[in-house]
Design a protein around this nucleic acid. Structure first.
Ligand SMILES: Nc1ncnc2c1ncn2[C@@H]1O[C@H](COP(=O)(O)OP(=O)(O)OP(=O)(O)O)[C@@H](O)[C@H]1O
Length: 814
DNA sequence: TTCTCCAGGATTTTT
DNA sequence: TCCTGGAGAA
């Protein structure tokens, strides 16, 4: 993540013309292209190095003259590589004569190859980090890789471009997007923001949300963008009336984004591609610069990403991609498997290396996964072997319902923890859909098992955080109407929907940034649609931003955000209202401010020259916009990992539980009617199983509750596709599960087997103040049932409303 | 303009 | 089952 901040080194903000020039942002937020390093704010020596690097491209000269890298003699390093890599891996790391594709199964060390290859290029091939571009699937993977390379090399990686496609494209667009008319202050719109924009677009086009779901239109637009179809072509290709109207919405949507100076996730990619394709002088700079390109998880790249790579690799033709077609699980969002299958055709003189030794899993796990994925058609046959022992067979457990499923898995987790001293962090529970996480979470809470829930509602998608972010974004990008609309009346400022709509129309008409419109509308004598007092309120609102903007020179980043939160009345609003969630919201905001503080620390460490806080804010926002959910995984904390199967990609755990192995859930009901979709689900299962190092357990239930309705289910076909000899059926206790257990009975049964004895006979009543071991204080709202088995609903100060089982929660009256 | 209540839809996966 | 958003009243 630290690398993110580098790109802001050259951004300059000028205070004089704030709010001005929506389209010619350069004056306000001028960014020097990397091709013009004359204003590079680094110490002189670096500046010269990079300048020359760009101009003459000779590493040797740079090395001898300036580089302060302390790389030992290359020979010990090579010896080390030979020791830590097997021969094909070694070959993949050291082959540098042309395009290279590493096609290999799970756990064969593909990521390891990328990591060592970066180190090799720097240490042995004497490339400057500056000349390397590496792409990973998540920011977390990028961070880890950077750390690994750091450890291997022990020298500065400054200048190395390592990140996700989205973050790298954003970076390029901030530098050079202005060549294709993109203001470098652009906001990045996530799904929620897109929703707001598409609704507006639909309103403009007279398409009601009833006849077409906004999400469906967005999906169509995203698909079109993945094919690089602009609204015009999309309209030409429209096959029916519906698509014609969709095309109109698409066009309007794009216009709105542009007006707001915003890009959505897809735009980041396709605009970067457009830049590279249509501005050869810009493209060339990058093509020359990146002598080596490395890509992990290549099987899940989409068409724009492929074009991005193809363009960048044009000059040096040295691209190294690694991937596994059996692990392609993102075709539903446009990933194109042809990228990896036709790699040989796409680049010239391609060398293909296969890795066949798996270092991760036991034989049973590997064989089970292998047999499963063999059911798929049209795949590359791969050999995968291991010199590990057979290990335990895969466990398959049948349970009566989803509650006992959670109980069973947590029993197992607790058992591993107490009996085998397995740290929680070495165990993970995977599931197909996010809803499933809830029961596991509740069960963890009941038992006091520390857990880490990955995904679901990402921290930065929480309401309160998005609100604060909207204030920040508006401060950076005064044209951002989606952010404006979000917070202009939050806290309440008596600025209702109608008035806001009028102002936005006015801003569009006058081609003014929305914030500027809010400011000037007061003086606008001819604008009769908005009441003068309302105009005054808009003006008042705009002065907030003016004030903050004038403070960006003096305040630190966290203080600035704190000032914003206080000045705008947001914290007061939360403090005053009686919603039990408010305290948790405030805490989240503080956590956000702490994150800003940490970010600033890293930023300052990387960019020594003083930088205006608003630049840091911009960098921080970008960092925030592009973090993915998996990025929440923290090292060093011992907690059970809960996540979707998709999130599990690229990770490994000694103990893996996969829950919900039922037809209609996994494979998901929406995938049942197409062979391709089923095969993708099967690959997902393959990915899940191959995450396991020592033991994998698959659970399924007889009946599952969905939307409050219980459904009978059938075991997933994937269970049958694993040959019996790799599997053992487990019972959830010594007794054979009978056909039907009411959930309460199950729970009681299990709880007596576990560590009980601590539950009290104490009776709670609504209104009682109680204390909970991990949730702190709260007020009882309601009680259901009696004694230790009672379900007590408590409104906790810290985390809000929760229902707990008395005997597990260890509640005490205060 | 804001608040409250009710209906109806949702959850497949995510940068 | 829970949440969102729309409609209608204050
Ligand atoms: N040559 C090796 N010697 C020892 N361990 C290795 C070797 N190569 C890889 N490993 C280990 O094997 C495990 C899997 O490696 P890695 O994650 O790089 O595989 P991968 O092919 O990227 O896996 P996947 O595609 O399933 O995500 C890691 O724990 C890694 O440290």
């Amino acid at each position: 993540m630290a690398h993110m901040s580098l790109l802001y080194g050259t951004i300059c903000f000028s205070h004089d013309s704030w709010l001005e020039n929506r389209s010619k942002g350069s004056r306000w937020f001028g960014i020097d292209s990397i091709s013009n390093p004359s204003r590079y704010p680094f110490p002189l020596r670096r500046r010269v190095v990079e300048y020359l690097h760009d101009k003459i491209n000779t590493n040797e000269w740079i090395d001898q003259t300036f580089m302060n890298f302390q790389i030992e003699n290359a020979t010990p390093f090579l010896n080390r590589l030979e020791k830590e890599l097997n021969p094909p891996q070694f070959q993949a790391v050291t082959y540098t004569d042309g395009p290279l594709l590493v096609l290999a199964g799970a756990g064969s060390g593909k990521t390891r190859v990328i990591t060592y290859r970066i180190a090799y290029l720097i240490a042995v091939k004497r490339l400057a980090p500056w000349n390397i571009l590496a792409v990973t699937f998540t920011n977390k993977a990028a961070g880890e890789m950077k750390e690994r390379v750091d450890v291997i090399l022990r020298h500065s990686l400054r200048g190395l471009w390592l990140g996700t496609f989205h973050s790298l494209c954003a970076r390029i667009l901030r530098y050079d997007g202005k060549a294709i008319g993109i203001d470098p202050r652009f906001s990045i719109y996530d799904t929620t923001d897109q929703g707001a924009a598409i609704k507006r677009a639909m309103a403009v086009c007279n398409v009601s949300p009833k006849e077409a779901k906004p999400a469906a239109i967005l999906a169509m637009i995203s698909k079109a963008k993945n094919r690089l179809e602009w609204p015009e072509q999309f309209e030409e290709n429209a096959r029916d009336e519906y698509e014609v109207r969709a095309a109109r919405v698409y066009k309007t949507y794009q216009a709105i984004l542009r007006e707001n100076n915003a890009l959505d996730f897809d735009d980041l990619l396709i605009e970067a591609v457009r830049l590279l394709l249509h501005k050869p002088e810009v493209g060339e700079t990058y093509q020359k610069r990146f002598q080596h390109i490395l890509v992990d998880e290549y099987q899940d790249t989409n068409h724009p990403q492929y074009l991005f790579l193809r363009e960048l690799a044009k000059h040096h033709n040295r691209i190294c991609a690694v991937g596994d077609d059996d692990q392609s699980i993102y075709r539903w969002r446009g990933a194109d498997i042809r990228n990896i299958l036709e790699f040989e055709r796409d680049f010239s003189n391609v060398k293909i290396i296969r890795l066949e030794q798996n270092y991760r899993s036991t034989r049973n796990i590997l064989a089970a996964a292998g047999h499963l994925v063999q059911q798929n058609s049209g795949r590359h046959k791969k050999t995968l072997w291991t010199d590990k022992e057979d290990g335990e067979k895969l466990g398959i457990v049948r349970l009566p319902d989803e509650i006992s499923e959670a109980i069973w898995i947590l029993n197992e987790v607790s058992r591993l923890y107490t009996e085998k001293s397995t740290p929680y962090g070495r165990m993970a529970v995977f599931y197909r859909t996010n809803v499933q996480s809830r029961l596991f979470e509740e069960e963890c809470i009941k038992r006091g098992v520390p857990y880490r829930l990955i995904g679901n509602i990402a921290f930065y998608e929480r309401k309160e955080i998005k609100d604060v972010l909207a204030y920040c974004r508006l401060l950076i990008n005064p044209a951002d109407m989606v952010s404006f609309q979000r917070i202009v009346n939050l806290p309440k400022r008596k600025l209702g929907a109608k008035a806001v709509q009028c102002l936005m129309d006015y801003a569009s008409l006058m081609k003014l940034p929305i914030l500027k419109a809010a400011k000037t509308i007061r003086e606008e004598k001819h604008e009769a649609t908005i009441h003068p007092t309302t105009r005054e309120r808009f003006y008042l609102f705009s002065t907030l931003f003016q004030k903050w903007h004038s403070q960006t020179k003096t305040l630190s980043l966290p203080t600035l955000i704190e000032t914003i939160v206080n000045d705008c009345g947001y914290s007061a609003m939360l403090e005053e209202d009686n919603d039990p969630q408010s305290q948790a919201r405030l805490d989240n905001i503080h956590e956000f401010i702490t994150a800003a503080m940490q970010f600033e620390k890293r930023f300052d460490a990387e960019i020594p020259s003083p930088v205006d806080t608003i630049v840091k804010l911009a960098a921080f926002l970008e960092n925030v916009a592009l973090v993915s959910q998996i990025d929440q995984l923290q090292e060093g904390e011992d907690a059970l990992i809960l996540m979707t199967l998709h999130g599990a990609k690229g990770l490994e755990f000694p103990y893996v539980f996969i829950a919900g192995m039922e037809e209609g859930l996994f494979p998901h009901s929406k995938s049942l009617d197409s062979k391709e979709a089923i095969e993708e689900e099967r690959r997902l299962c393959y990915v899940g199983i191959t995450r396991g190092q020592m033991r994998v357990v698959l659970t399924h239930v007889e009946s599952r509750r969905l939307y409050g309705r219980s459904e009978w289910t059938r075991p997933s076909r994937f269970l049958q596709e694993i040959p019996d000899r790799f599997v053992e059926e487990l019972c959830w206790s010594d007794a054979k599960p009978s056909l039907y257990h009411p959930p309460g009975v199950m729970e009681a049964f299990v709880s007596f087997g576990g560590d009980s004895g601590d539950w009290r006979k104490e009776q709670f009543e609504p209104g009682d103040m109680v204390n909970h071991r991990s949730f702190g204080f709260g007020v009882v709202l309601g009680v259901e049932g009696e004694g230790g088995r009672a379900r007590v609903t408590v409104d906790f100060q810290e985390i809000g409303k929760k229902t707990v089982i008395q005997e597990f929660a260890k509640l005490t009256k205060v």
